[in-house]
Amino acid sequence: MSDLSSSDLVFPEWPQYDDTERDNLIRALEQGQWWRIGGSEVDEFEREFGEYHGASHTLAVTTGTHALELALQVLGVGPGTEVIVPAFTFISSSQAAQRLGAVVVPVDVDLGTYNISPEAVANAITDRTRVIMPVHMAGQIADMDALDKIAADSGVAILQDAAHAHGARWRGKRIGELGSMAAFSFQNGKLMTAGEGGAVIFPDRELYEEGFLRHSCGRPRTDRHYLHRVSGSNFRMNEFSGAILRAQLSRLDGQITLREQRGPLLARLLAEIPGVVPQEIDPRADRNPRYMAMFRLEGADETTRNEIVDRLVQRGLPAFSAFRAIHRCEAFWEIGAPDETVEAVAERTPNAETLSREAVWLHHRTLLGAEEQMHRIAEIVADVVARA
């Protein structure tokens, strides 16, 4: 194999921006009101983002983590309740619930799709379970058919962690058409970004109105006398972020279309490499924005995986070690942890343990590259894995 250097690969930069963002920022500046209560940019972004996702009620907030925390609070999560989350996810999924005083119960994921296992969810439900939180890993929607049935049978609410899944669809339905609340992130690496930011979509007006109160310190929109009705915090998005996100949204659909063309090709090429197993795609997830190009290094230990990631970076690929299983993080055990040991959780989440050791992901900007670059990516991965 040729020893390709970084000069052979020039991927699009991220974040992407052009005069649309500049013009929108100037418009937000010149309106003279820079917070959402007096301005129009956040209101318009909420309308446009909601329309794109098939949601009639959308609330923009400060971060994706705050989106989860706010949504959980609206769903009644607090002390004495439990929230089921996948053991393989970014730790915000668990910390948002733990900061509300709830106990987080990690469950296993599917080794092919990396998404939460419905069977594991069903086995974890107790009379204290308040919310099931599927994470749409790398942009692929979790098995919402099975999860919706579990939720209906148990009376437990679903909150979709859609931080990776802007524009995703499940059996032709957009996320806002799936009947449950969902939280999005606009952090710097996400599929659309204002550096930070988040949003919650709601299935009905009543939940939305409670969300609005709680995201604005419990204060109604028109209040002039500090009549704070419920507990909450200041999760309000500013007008400049709203203006940036309106521009980002305008190019999202085209980017998804390109990534959906490149993603299957790269996965096929990676699957031809001995020891490399790409993330499986559930055909029911019929629009996958592909936030990450993910794969496993089958049989690798964590040290070897990390060394391979370092070598991929040296060769010009924006490669990353995948999430550590949440129960393998010290932070998970500080508050709101189950009455179990680390090893007990690990024993019942073997797939999450495997992914925590073996999984690698490539930044989604790689999938905005030319078709030829997918072949070069696979060649570099094959060379680095063979040398390791």
Rank of each mutant, 00 (worst) to 15 (best):
I256W: 14
T257H: 14
R259K: 14
E260R: 15
Q261C: 05
G263P: 01
P264M: 04
P264R: 03
L265T: 11
L265S: 00
L266R: 07
L266Q: 06
A267F: 12
A267W: 12
A271G: 15
I273G: 04
G275W: 05
V277S: 10
V277G: 00
V277Y: 08
Q279K: 15
E280T: 15
I281Q: 01
D286A: 12
D286R: 03
N288G: 04
R290K: 11
M294G: 02
R296F: 00
R296W: 03
E298F: 01
T303Q: 07
T303G: 08
T304V: 15
T304H: 09
N306A: 12
N306Q: 13
R311E: 09
R311Y: 04
L312Y: 08
Q314D: 09
Q314P: 03
R315T: 13
P318C: 02
F320C: 03
F323L: 00
R324I: 14
R324L: 10
A325I: 07
H327Q: 04
R328A: 04
C329G: 12
C329F: 06
E330C: 03
E330M: 08
F332E: 02
W333G: 02
E334W: 13
G336A: 04
A337N: 03
D339Q: 11
E340S: 14
E343W: 13
A344F: 11
A344H: 13
A346Q: 13
